[in-house]
Nucleic acid binder design. Structure first.
Length: 639
DNA sequence: CCAGTATCCCTTTTT
DNA sequence: GGGATACTGG
């Protein structure tokens, strides 16, 4: 073997890397070299003659998978890049396209993102909302949340409502029929939401033994990263994938489970050895990332949790500065403190790409972004609103989507509402006609309406006439659509040059694809997620960016210096999550994840004298999640 | 049946 | 500060 594994890995890591066949569970504390272990195992398997395309690496984001395989390739050779990797959703999407006929879902189905799903729900909601109802139905956002929770936890709608939304119990009947109708409509029009991808993927693997065998003979070695954040459906998929050969390596850390809100259950980790008898258990506890003072704080934070496995992180890096807890008088001072401190760190030689500012919710960084601009500090922001969710991008993409799936009701609706003199009723009528004719996009050309002239509709017809009868490349199609859309955009928004630029960026991404199906899937499942860029610096002039990120999006990453802002009681944890024990524990784990991202410097910063609208109180106390930290382990300050 | 305006409510995290 | 809803005029 060419790689000197035993020189490069500690005993437990080595054991995991050398393990070959059968089930293995690696419980890996934060910073314990979990990613490293996965990478080395990929390399080791390939070096031992396992074919790279028989390995499947399931991770939380595509980026994580790509990053790992790139590192594996560096370690061994380019073969590692042939390993299949991605999210459960992306993997399900792949097998569903291939075996669509089995489930009768149409291989060119459309993936509904969250707002598409909500739009579909809103339509049905309107139809169902009768004047005889006692109250109004929950808003579309809430309804989608209920449906999604049911799907992800594999339970019924009424259970979810009784457990988490008991104030809607009186509307359970209506919500159940709304859910049924939602399912019918998706099926009829070849639409799948995020949850359907997993659900149908699971069905494929559990109810069709022949397909399960085909798939498992392709993928002989399954690796699942972040297993603590899988939900019951994903667990079923894992079981299905490995039933024939039992070659499964799951890696996770119960203390870092932060996705319970979407059905994840770290019970999956506990159940693993029961589900796979003879599981090899390996624990990685030595931390290679952070200094001991940082780990002390992290360990103390977890003291507050009831539901956990006793575990204490330790490191050989005993020296280091004490983490700081800074009170700032007001949000502005918080922003100024953070920005100036970052500037100072940069002057002392820490590159910006080694610094991150983390926060609980995406809007927490708004004020800081202004301050960073003032200081001329370039940054990228990860998490929160994606630019693919903004209206103009969705409009543009909708025009492409109906080329692939002409019965995509949501996209039709979007496109038609852009036109003058067409509102919800007319749009619905047009879609109904297209759908009933059942001749694909051609249905558009024989629409009959009461009004004689519809200039907008005529323009739309000629757009699709142009797109229909030629052998245009993807890019040319995009340009044609943009040319059509630009005047519409101009009428709707004042800042349309900026929006056009963003659409051009999307076309740039599109030009790297060979077919629309893949492009559209990726836009829904793995959109480019670095949204806001500091406009003072274009991408070309500097590669050194500060990172602003939600804690959720920072999972698995590390930086030299970390600032956790809005560490204010009432914001993190928010007032919503302090009532239920399990909610509060998830916040605690979230704080734990945030602190363990830091290698050398850690700053908790909170503004004081913040008026809270929802309670009418003034917030001034540091986060209760920090209460368990012994006073001597933090250096306190005020600015 | 569309489009514009006034009013009330809630405000997380992601595939 | 945005979204859903209700109401009004065309």
């Amino acid at each position: 073997m060419s790689i000197p594994y035993h020189n490069l890995l500690n005993a437990s890591q080595l054991e995991a890397v050398m393990f070959s066949n059968g089930p293995m569970l690696v419980i890996a504390g934060a910073g314990s070299g979990k990613t490293r272990t996965l990478i080395y195992r990929v390399a080791r398997l390939i070096e031992d003659g396992v074919s790279p395309d028989s390995i499947l690496l399931l991770t939380f984001t595509r980026k994580a998978a790509e990053e790992m395989l790139k590192r594996a390739a560096k370690l061994l050779d380019a073969r590692c890049q042939q390993v299949s990797g991605g999210t459960f959703h992306a993997f399900s999407n792949r097998i569903l396209r291939k075996y669509a006929s089995k489930l009768d879902i149409g291989e060119r189905f459309t993936i509904l993102d969250r707002s598409d799903a909500e739009a579909l729900i809103a339509g049905i909601r309107k139809e169902l909302q009768s004047p005889f109802d006692a109250g109004t139905l929950p808003r579309k956002h809430t309804i989608a949340q209920i449906f999604s929770k049911a799907a992800n936890k594999s339970i019924e709608i009424d259970e979810v409502i009784e457990e988490d939304f008991s104030h809607f119990t009186h509307q359970i009947e209506t919500l159940i029929s709304l859910h049924q109708e939602y399912g019918i409509r998706k099926r009829k029009n070849y639409l799948l939401d995020y949850d359907d991808l997993l659900l149908f993927g699971k069905i494929l693997l559990t109810e069709f033994p022949d397909i399960r065998e085909q798939i498992s003979s392709t993928y002989r070695y399954i690796m699942v990263d972040e297993y603590q954040d899988t939900n019951p459906v994903q667990a079923e998929i894992t079981y299905g994938l490995t039933e024939c050969h039992q070659n499964i390596m799951a890696v996770g850390d119960d203390a870092q489970s932060i996705y319970a809100f979407r059905g994840a259950n770290f019970q999956n980790i506990m159940d693993f050895p029961k589900k796979f008898p003879g599981t090899k258990m390996i624990r990685l506890e030595e931390n290679y990332r952070s200094t001991q003072p940082i780990l002390n704080v992290a360990n103390d934070i977890m003291l507050g949790a009831q539901n956990k496995y006793e575990k204490t992180l330790y490191t050989k890096i005993t020296k280091g500065d004490l983490p700081r807890l800074i009170a700032a008088r007001g949000e502005k001072r918080q922003s100024i403190y953070v920005a100036s401190k970052i500037e100072k760190l940069r002057q002392q030689g820490t590159p910006l790409n080694q610094i991150a500012v983390l926060f609980r919710a995406s809007f927490h960084s708004f004020d800081l972004e202004i301050e960073l601009n003032r200081y001329g500090i370039p940054f990228i922001k990860v998490g929160g609103f994606q630019f693919t969710e903004s209206a103009h991008i969705k409009d543009f993409i909708a025009h492409l989507k109906i080329l692939v799936n002409p019965y995509d009701q949501i996209s039709w609706h979007r496109i038609l509402l852009l036109l003058d003199q067409i509102g919800p009723k007319t749009a619905q009528d047009i879609f109904r006609q297209v759908r009933e004719k059942d001749v694909g996009l051609d249905g558009l050309f024989s629409i009959k309406l009461k009004k004689k002239r519809h200039p907008g509709l005529e323009a739309l017809k000629s757009l699709y006439e142009e797109l229909g009868d030629s052998s245009k490349t993807m890019l040319e199609i995009g340009e044609t659509i943009l040319a059509y859309y630009e005047p519409i955009l101009g009428k709707k928004h004042d800042n349309h040059p900026k929006r056009i630029k963003e659409i051009e960026q999307v076309m740039e991404i599109m030009s790297r694809y060979d077919d629309f199906d893949q492009f559209l899937s990726d836009m829904a499942l793995e959109p480019p997620n670095t949204s806001v860029k500091n406009r003072l610096f274009s991408e070309e002039t500097t590669r050194d960016y500060l990172t602003l990120s939600t804690i959720h999006s920072a999972k698995g990453l590390e930086w030299h210096s970390i600032f956790i802002i809005w560490a204010l009681d009432g914001r993190f944890p928010s007032n919503y999550s302090i009532y239920r024990e399990e909610d509060l524990e998830e916040e605690l784990r979230l704080m734990y994840v945030a602190t363990t991202r830091a290698k050398e410097n850690l700053f908790f910063v909170y503004p004081t004298n913040i008026y809270d609208k929802s309670t009418g109180r003034i917030l001034y106390r540091p986060s209760r999640l920090l209460d368990q930290i012994s006073p001597e382990m933090l250096k306190k300050g005020m600015v």
